[in-house]
């Protein structure tokens, strides 16, 4: 499969960052929710590492557990409606965030790991000014005085290329457009220079042109501030433009992880392959041919099959797939795949 049009970012893969020690290690993270119909496991045994200066993409359909993963790391899920299974570890600076105290978590949130969200329209508090909301983060995590904080906030707004930063400081969120609000969110997330930025579908709600600007901005800031980014998205196009490495999730499980170029060139999991082939290919439309889609639905988390979770929709399935769930196994350098019959890696080209 040729996906060269998507691999602009991946072309830099050769000099990929991510050597050395990871900043964040997630091991066997499982998060369960208590619902009316019983306990449901939203993400099951998720493990990965994030290295400094790297952009890790987490891809999957809605309901695959991408957002739950990020919110579990930040511990933003309701404490009496959800819990992590025994043995879940989110190691950050030698500490397990899953068992950290609320005080310890507060010092991590915003200061060391920051987050931006999908809906810039509702993620900012409507009754406080932009300045107030930027100031709040600085107040919690720095020792700057009031004037210094204001100066820093304005600097940050300028850094995210906010026009008229000084004036915007005193404006309310409803006076800004969606793209500008997302810039404010980014400024807010980065103002304490965090080690990790988790971006949960940061561009989904934005226009395509604004989307490109925001992605470019994040990329620039990443190299400027040497922040590791965890980018959660369902859009493989976005992944292609920005990520170094990708984690593909399906029904609460990691099904494949790979460096970007390898994933696009040679997906090893049938689900990844199906995802890639459902992207429209610009410039080479095959007339009269329908864009392939993945038949069927993601299984309900309440009624998971005993075997492979993708089996019902998989073109390569057999009886073994229905009976036994595959393990996540190594499939080359820094590659893992969860499949009994991983697709063959094509000849090197």
């Amino acid at each position: 499969m040729n996906s060269s049009h998507l691999t602009t970012r991946a072309a830099r893969e050769g000099s990929a960052p991510g050597s050395g020690k990871p900043v964040l290690e997630v091991e066997h993270l499982s998060t369960c929710f208590k619902t009316d119909q019983g306990v449901v496991t939203a993400i099951d045994d998720v493990s990965f590492e994030l290295y400094a200066g790297e952009t890790l993409g987490i891809v999957g359909e809605s309901g695959s557990g991408k957002t739950v993963t990020s919110k579990s790391i930040m511990r933003l899920l309701s404490e009496h409606l959800s819990f992590q299974k025994e043995g879940s570890v989110v190691r950050f600076e030698g500490k397990n965030l899953v068992t950290a105290t609320e005080d310890e978590m507060r010092n991590v949130r915003g200061a060391r790991i920051a987050m931006i969200f999908q809906e810039p329209m509702t993620s900012l508090n409507p009754v406080f000014t932009i300045g107030w909301q930027l100031d709040e983060a600085l107040k919690y995590h720095t020792k700057l005085n009031r004037a210094e904080r204001k100066q820093r906030a304005i600097e940050m707004l300028e850094l995210v290329e906010m026009p008229n930063a000084k004036r915007r400081f005193d404006e309310y969120p409803h006076q800004l457009s969606g793209g500008m609000r997302q810039r404010v969110m980014i400024a807010m997330a980065l103002c304490c220079e965090p080690d990790i930025l988790i971006a949960d579908e940061p561009t989904t709600a934005l226009d395509v042109t604004i989307q490109a600007q925001i992605l470019r901005l994040m990329d620039e800031l990443k190299s400027k501030l040497n922040t590791a980014i965890m980018l959660i998205t369902h859009d493989l196009g976005v992944v292609a433009q920005t990520c170094d490495r990708v984690l593909v999730m399906y029904a609460g499980r990691v099904v494949e992880s790979a460096p970007i170029a390898q994933l696009f060139d040679a997906p090893r999991h049938p689900y990844t392959k199906a995802l890639l082939s459902s992207i429209p290919k610009s410039g080479r439309r095959e007339h009269g041919k329908r864009l392939p889609t993945i038949e069927g639905l993601v299984p309900s988390l309440f009624h998971l099959p005993p075997g492979c979770r993708f089996a019902a929709r998989c073109a390569y399935r057999d009886a073994h797939c229905d009976a036994v769930e595959p393990e996540l196994t190594d499939a080359g350098p820094r590659r893992e795949v969860r499949c009994h019959y991983p697709l063959e890696a094509p000849e090197a080209n």
Partner: peptide
């Protein structure tokens, strides 16, 4: 509301 999650992610106390 979403802004509550934002505030929490910023490190605000309960």
């Amino acid at each position: 509301r979403d802004y509550i999650t934002t505030a929490k992610a910023k490190g605000a106390t309960k």
